[in-house]
Computed example of a mutant assay.
Amino acid sequence: MKSNNNRLRACVAAMSAAAALAAALPLQAQTANAPIPASSTPEYRLGAGDVVRITVYQNPDLTLETRVSETGVVSYPLIGQVRLGGQSISAAERAIADGLRNGNFVKQPQVTIAVLQVRGNQANVLGQVNRPGRYPLEVAEMRLTDLLAMAGGTAVSGGDVIIVTGSRNGRPFRAEVDVPTIFSANSNTEDILIQNGDVIWVERQPTVYIYGEVQRPGPMRLERGMTLMQALATGGGLTQRGTEKGIRVHRRSVDGKTEIITPTMDDRMKDGDVIYVRESLF
C-alpha cells in the first residue's frame, strides 16, 4: 500500500512539473503547430447589368439565367425580388438560400451563382493604347497593369505616364502613375487598384523634332534625360554640311511664347523642342 502511495505521489509531481514547463514556454512555441487561418481574398461584387446563372442543387426547376437590374435586384422564382447588386457572390448565394429556406420551399438549399457576363463593374481605357475601350473588371482586385494588358498594352505612340480618374469613398480621385517605376527594384509606386467607373488615360509620348543638316530629320521619341547629343545621334548625326556651332533649339515657354536657345551638347531636351542644325558656311 505504501509503495502505491509513493507511485501516486510521483505521478502527481511529474504532471505538475509538466504543466509548469508548458506554462513557462513562450507563446510562439505553444502555438507553433496551431492551424493558420486562411487569408480572406476579396470576392467579385455583383453590379447592375451583370448576367448570372443561379442554380439550386437537386432543384433544376429553380435554375435561372437573369440580368441584375439597374436597381441591383433580380426576380427569383418563389421568393420574388432579391437584392444582389453590391454583394459578393457568396453573400448573394446566402441571400437566395435564406429566402428559399425561410419560405419553406427548400429545406437545405445549396445555391450556386455563376457570372456569365460582367457588365456592372467596368472601366474605360483611353488614349495611346492598342485597344482602347470599356473593359469589365472580372476580378475583385484588378490592378492598373492588368487592365493595360487587357487593352493590348501601351501603343508605340504612348508615353510612360498614365492618369487614373474616378471616385474613392464618394470623393473625386485622380492619380498620375509612372508605369516603369512600378517594376523598379526600389519603387514606392503602387499598382493602383481599379474600381468601377474609373477612366485610364495613357498620355502621348513626349516628342522632340529635329530638322536641318541631319541624316534623319523628323519627330523622335524623347527618352528620359535625353541630351542634345543623344538627340542628334538618334537623328543619325550631322550631314557633311552640318555644324555643331549652328545648332539652335526652339522651345515654348510657360507663357506660350517660343524662345530660341543656343544649347550645349549636354543640355537636356524637353517635350516639344524643335532642334535646328544649320549648314556650315565653310
Rank of each mutant, 00 (worst) to 15 (best):
A91Y: 02
Q81T: 15
D146Q: 06
Q122H: 08
E176R: 13
I96D: 06
D178V: 12
A91G: 06
G133V: 07
R94D: 13
G152V: 03
V106I: 12
A140L: 08
I163D: 12
V161Y: 01
I162F: 00
L148T: 06
N130V: 14
L148C: 10
G152F: 05
P132W: 06
A140S: 15
G85V: 08
T165W: 01
F173I: 12
P136M: 06
I89G: 05
T154M: 05
N124H: 10
Q108L: 11
E176L: 07
V106A: 07
P132V: 12
L116M: 14
L137H: 10
S88H: 04
A92C: 04
R134C: 03
M150K: 15
V111L: 02
V125W: 04
T145C: 05
N169G: 06
A95H: 07
A97E: 10
D160I: 05
E141F: 00
G152P: 12
R134H: 01
E93S: 00
V156Y: 05
A91M: 09
T71A: 09
G159R: 00
L147A: 12
S90Q: 10
E138R: 14
V115H: 04
G86D: 08
V115L: 03
A175N: 09
A123R: 08
G99I: 00
G152N: 09
N102T: 13
L148F: 06
R174V: 14
A92N: 08
A140F: 01
G159I: 06
Q87T: 14
A155D: 12
P77S: 00
R119E: 15
Q122R: 15
L137D: 13
A95T: 14
I162H: 01
V125C: 04
P136K: 00
V161K: 08
V164Y: 05
A140R: 01
G158D: 11
A140I: 04
Q108P: 00
V118N: 15
P136F: 05
A149Q: 12
G80D: 12
G166I: 05
V74G: 11
S90C: 07
S157D: 13
V177D: 08
Q108K: 14
V115A: 01
Y76K: 01
A114Q: 14
S75P: 04
L126S: 14
R134K: 11
A123I: 09
Q81S: 14
N121G: 02
V74M: 03
P132E: 08
V177F: 02
L148P: 02
S88W: 02
Q110I: 15
R168W: 02
R143G: 10
F105V: 15
N130Y: 09
R83Q: 15
A91K: 11
F173H: 13
E70F: 06
R168L: 07
T145I: 04
K107M: 12
G120A: 08
G152S: 08
Y76F: 15
V177T: 13
I163G: 06
Q81Y: 01
G103C: 10
V82E: 09
G86V: 07
E176T: 14
R101N: 13
G127C: 06
P180R: 13
E138P: 02
A95I: 00
P180V: 14
G86A: 07
G166E: 07
I163Q: 13
I89L: 13
S167V: 09
Q122Y: 05
A175Q: 15
G85T: 10
V74K: 01
P180N: 10
K107D: 14
Y135M: 12
N121W: 03
F173N: 12
